[in-house]
């Protein structure tokens, strides 16, 4: 138990350090690589919470594809950050307010792994008891994602498809057949 807490603190500290470096970095190429490292650290954190599927997704999407797309964008634009014209006071106010609201919101979230959480009292036991009989699949995450919440996943796939259509409409035309 104590070693898990130690790993959590270490990972969170490294996460914070990476975020600070991303913010300080003027070279956007390094910043993009650091966002990949940030995703990998998040994936490790999910792994310590035993959320293997989420961790897998974060590692492949966040650290893999998103970094590649950022690099592709940098190849089309510039790899050094331009100096801001004036101090972005408004942005600072918005970011601070949002951060404070999020921290305030945390107080209402039930603590991690608490047996009294609503999700632990009726939802998870139901899936654990009934899903092997109803779906017959060992990986319960898949049976929840693909069967119990099939509508939701259909929506996610549609969102990805819509993003593809949007990118094609903005960037896909004109230069394609040249």
């Amino acid at each position: 138990m104590t070693i898990e807490i130690f790993i959590d603190i270490l990972l969170l500290f490294m996460l914070l350090l990476t975020a600070l470096f991303i913010q300080r970095m003027k070279n956007l190429f390094s910043a993009v690589i650091l966002t990949g490292i940030f995703s990998l650290l998040s994936a490790s954190l999910f792994l310590t919470m035993d959320a293997v599927d989420v961790s897998f997704t974060e590692a492949s999407v966040g650290a893999g594809i998103a970094t590649l797309l950022f690099l592709g964008t940098l190849a089309q634009t510039s790899s050094t950050e331009s100096r801001p014209q004036r101090l972005p006071v408004m942005a600072l106010v918005v970011v601070s307010l949002t951060g404070l609201m999020l921290i305030y919101g945390i107080s209402d979230i039930p603590s991690f792994g608490d047996p009294g959480n609503p999700v632990q009292t009726y939802l998870s036991p139901r899936f654990i008891e009934v899903s092997p009989r109803e779906i017959g699949i060992p990986n319960m995450v898949t049976s929840v994602l693909a069967s119990y919440r099939g509508y939701d996943t259909l929506g996610e796939v549609t969102v990805i498809f819509t993003a593809c259509v949007g990118v094609l409409l903005m960037l896909g035309r004109g230069r394609k057949r040249s």
Binding site: V52, D53, S55, F56, T57, S60, V61, G64, I65, I137, P138, N139, V141, T142, S143, L145, A146, E156
Partner: peptide, 15 residues
Amino acid sequence: HGEYSPGGGFQAGVI
């Protein structure tokens, strides 16, 4: 193998 181990369509597609 997403039914038996971590993974599924999203991760497989990305890989």
